[in-house]
């Protein structure tokens, strides 16, 4: 059970959160202008790295806010937590 530092509420048990997959996948500005392949990449393709990964979490059983986390998928170490709209911080 991860201890996730919600940027609004502080550290809380993982069970209070909902996972939202890879972060920084913006909804395309003009979907109609995209090729089928580009649109399919937006819909279906996500990174799956071993190591640091920027991902979205929502504090569903708390403040109900979405935020971003950089988590090492191999060790579960959380390197950074930041708010939606902020750039991914540089982590070690």
């Amino acid at each position: 059970m991860l201890l996730i530092p919600c940027p609004w509420c502080g550290p809380r048990d993982e069970a209070e959160f909902h996972y939202g997959g890879q972060a920084h996948i913006a909804y395309p500005d003009n979907p109609a202008a995209l090729s089928d392949e580009e649109w399919a990449r937006y819909l279906f393709f996500r990174d799956n790295p071993k190591g640091p990964f920027a991902e979205r979490w929502s504090h569903t059983a708390g403040c109900r806010r979405w935020f971003n986390v950089v988590r090492d998928t191999a060790t579960n170490e959380i390197h950074a937590v930041y708010r939606v709209g902020e750039p991914r911080p540089v982590t070690a």
Binding site: H18, Y27, R65, W66, V84, G85
Partner: peptide, 13 residues
């Protein structure tokens, strides 16, 4: 409701 919140918070703040 979650769907609405997700779009409002992450895409259309």
């Amino acid at each position: 409701l979650d769907w609405m919140e997700e779009w409002l918070q992450t895409e259309w703040p």
